[in-house]
Simulated scan of single mutants.
Amino acid sequence: MVRRRSGILNKFSVSEACIDLPDITLFNHDKIKTFDLVITTVGFEDRSLAFVQESCSEFQCEYALVGKYKTNKVENEINEASITNFFMSHSIHTSEVCADSPLAISKKINEILDNISQEKKIIRCFFDISSASNRFILSVLQTLTSSNLELGLSIFYAEPTDYFPQSSEYHSNPEACISEALASSSKEPLIETGVSAVNENELYPGHFPEVGKPFLISIPSYRMTRMGRCIQQIDEQLLSSSNKDSCFWIFGEPKKEILKWRTMYQKSIVENYLKKFTTEDSDSYQPPLTEENSKRCCTLNYKEILAALIELADSNLGKRITIVPMGSKLQAVGVALALYARSECSVLHASPGAFNPNRYSNGIGDKWLLEFESISNVKRIVSKIGELELTPI
């Protein structure tokens, strides 16, 4: 005789998953001493040196991997010597990788992990994302989450002291700041200029029906040139009135009250950009951004954007979903975890011609640490989202 189990079927929700995932905490350098693999990048921002300046004298690692960008090579050299010299002094093996190549990043990390795994069953990794691009963050995390090895991961993030435009500049002339964000010229004051390339991330090819309707999840920055090029590559008619349900916008909301204006600034940039795709004379005119096609996610809370992306993917099944991630660095962590759980989504990146270091950021602000004791456990948690569970009664 077969005994049947009785109970209540419950779906494991994204909110339950977020409870099980760790929160970020303020960085304490005394906790950071020994790692098997450290991954970082060389950038021109002051915060590129935050970890080097904050790490304790006892810090040691076996392998250090330094990502180097093709963009702004001359400006990046200002910090390069300090970063490379630090790791040459505190690691046994130091190597470099092209930070703009997902395949090269993945190959190099896997080679290092294979070497370490010859002697260790549990590998401790440390990832400084302070000057890492969304492309680099997603590529590193895809590689680590794809590994069958037992990995632990600590993620370090340093905020800048100031962002551009500064609050006084924006509030004195918001129209000028919005116009700059929409401009496509190469004049010096712009935060970034031009678009050198638009590429799919080979590590996130997605899998969806060719006949599916395109659906874009846009996580914009504070300039529209690169996002505009990505939209054109997906579908030049994507934002037309006949495709009003084909795009969802996720805006970054800073945690600090003093920076909340940046969300309104970002939203105003996108609203002005979308005006050229709408006709206000139409009887059916609707504002370009509504609660149905946009939301805000905290720039320091990776769980918020993780939840948003899972819900968007699940509510747009059968569509060709593309994510264009240009948000905050900690948001990129949430994007990577969402993509692990919903691999049907693809990722598109756009590289600028150049950044303007004088209009990017200044100083080193608060420093944060996110600790995943076991990546295997993180994978288990996010993979369960949406699954049915039987609760005995």
Rank of each mutant, 00 (worst) to 15 (best):
Y170K: 04
E253A: 10
E236T: 13
V195R: 01
Q233G: 01
Y170Q: 07
G228H: 08
S221Y: 10
E271A: 07
E200T: 09
A176L: 15
E188H: 13
I219M: 15
E271N: 05
H207R: 10
M224L: 06
T263H: 14
V198Q: 12
N199I: 12
L259R: 13
I269M: 11
S185G: 13
N199Q: 12
I250R: 06
T193V: 11
S172G: 01
H171F: 03
L274G: 04
N243C: 07
S221G: 15
S240N: 14
Y273E: 10
P254G: 08
Y265D: 03
V211E: 14
I217L: 07
M227Q: 14
R223M: 03
P209H: 08
I191C: 07
I231R: 09
K213E: 05
W249D: 02
K267P: 06
K256A: 10
A183L: 07
V198E: 09
E257C: 01
S184P: 00
P209Q: 12
S221K: 09
F251A: 08
G252M: 04
T193I: 05
S186L: 13
I178D: 06
S241N: 08
K256P: 00
K260G: 01
E175D: 15
W249H: 14
Y273D: 02
S172D: 12
S241T: 14
I217P: 09
N243M: 12
M227R: 10
F248I: 02
L239T: 06
S218A: 12
V195D: 02
G228N: 14
S172V: 03
V198M: 11
S268H: 07
C177M: 15
K187S: 14
K256F: 06
S218Y: 01
S179N: 14
P189T: 04
K187G: 01
S179H: 12
K260M: 03
G194M: 05
P174W: 09
F248T: 02
S179C: 10
I250F: 03
I234A: 04
N199E: 13
Q232D: 11
W261S: 01
E192A: 13
H171V: 01
S268P: 00
K213L: 00
N243Y: 05
Q233C: 03
L182M: 12
E180N: 04
F208Y: 12
L238R: 10
S218L: 14
M227L: 12
D235H: 11
N201D: 14
I217C: 06
P209E: 07
P220F: 00
